[in-house]
């Protein structure tokens, strides 16, 4: 997902405190920043929320790529608004993460040094305008699948950020789908572009949910802490069930010859993505890893003089006010 493969940290805290903490979570209480929490819970959340925030910020890049080349002024405005939303979502999440005792600049540092990850999906290129449709429809669609249940997550600031994000995210998916509709109903060349975009984004979108976690210890701990609500497989199945009819409506073919309706489970059987590709992309060997991280680092470094300038100005103004008040 936007936060993939979150391993949970062990807690070496007092067992009595741990039990009381777990009881609070089991009762459905929200944990707030200054309250006692196990060290493992705090660290795991920093990793998860941080990765989620980084994904929102890096996620601006594949779409930012098309802002200057959107086919109409309206589409350009829409895309601009969507990319601006992603920046906002990143900021909500960085704020939530900061309440756990880590600074935003430190989180940026960890992203730029490669110590923290962002979602594998953003290491794929956006080659045509139809990719803007596929990204909104599939990538944001997959993100929504994960984020809706996270509105009930146990950590208050994270849950509140999710509520805000979910409210805005549905626009993202719908604008993507309308791009796909336009392309699929257009000329044969346009329809072929839409099909090509679906072909390229289908499996990377399925990978967003992460590998099957039924045997994972971390997954069990994170679910007990309610910082993970559903298993990866549950969410992936839900996503496929929802997406297949949408693809059919477009008259497009899901690129999976094993796709069959399973009457017993009332859902689609489908092929697993190539997990070796997923792990390679996570490790840094995706088609765009270097470009994405390079763009982030450059933006941060190039903006340094500006950030420092604003700080210097604020300090000067504060000093002036102080002198004025002393007169």
């Amino acid at each position: 997902m936007y936060a993939q493969m979150i391993t949970s940290e062990k807690s070496s805290d007092d067992p009595e405190l741990l039990a009381a903490f777990q009881a609070r979570i089991d009762r459905g209480e929200r944990i707030e920043p200054k309250e006692w929490m196990p060290e493992g819970y705090r660290k795991t959340l920093i990793r998860q929320i941080g990765q989620h925030a980084h994904s929102e910020i890096v996620g601006q890049l594949p779409e930012g790529n098309w802002i200057t080349r959107a086919p109409t002024l309206e589409r350009k405005q829409i895309l601009l608004a969507k990319v601006q939303d992603e920046a906002g979502h990143g900021l909500y999440l960085y704020s939530a993460c900061e309440t756990l005792g880590i600074s935003r600049d430190e989180l940026f540092d960890r992203l730029h040094s490669g110590a923290m990850k962002y979602s594998s999906i953003f290491n794929y290129p956006t080659l045509t305008w139809a990719d803007m449709g596929a990204v909104g429809w599939l990538v944001d669609g997959a993100a929504i699948m994960n984020q809706v249940p996270l509105q009930r997550t146990s950590y208050g600031p994270y849950a509140r950020a999710m509520v805000r994000i979910c409210k805005e995210e549905s626009f993202h998916q719908r604008q993507g789908y309308t791009i796909m509709m336009k392309m699929a109903q257009g000329t044969p060349e346009q329809k072929a572009m839409a099909q090509d975009a679906l072909n390229r984004f289908w499996y990377p979108s399925l990978m967003m949910f992460g590998p099957s976690d039924k045997d994972s210890v971390h997954s069990a701990q994170n679910m007990a802490w309610k910082i993970k609500i559903n298993t990866n497989d549950e969410l992936r199945q839900r996503f496929v069930n929802e997406t297949v009819p949408q693809a059919r409506y477009l008259g497009l073919e899901v690129p999976d010859e094993n796709l069959t309706w399973n009457e017993d489970k009332q859902g689609w059987d489908f092929s697993e993505p190539d997990w070796s590709e997923f792990f390679a992309v996570l490790k840094g060997d995706g088609p765009c890893n270097e470009e994405r991280l390079g763009a982030r680092r450059k933006a941060w470094d190039d903006g340094e003089w500006f950030r420092d300038g604003l700080t210097a100005y604020a300090e000067k103004q504060a000093a002036r006010r102080k002198a004025h008040a002393a007169e």
Binding site: D85, G88, S95, R104, A161, L310, T311, A314, Q317
Partner: peptide, 23 residues
């Protein structure tokens, strides 16, 4: 509604406009 980073109060208002009142 939340928090944000800004160098001074005026910029904080500007950022708040962009981050928390886009709609």
């Amino acid at each position: 509604v939340g928090s944000l980073h800004a160098p001074d109060a005026e910029m904080a208002i500007n950022h708040a406009r962009d981050v928390y009142t886009r709609r």
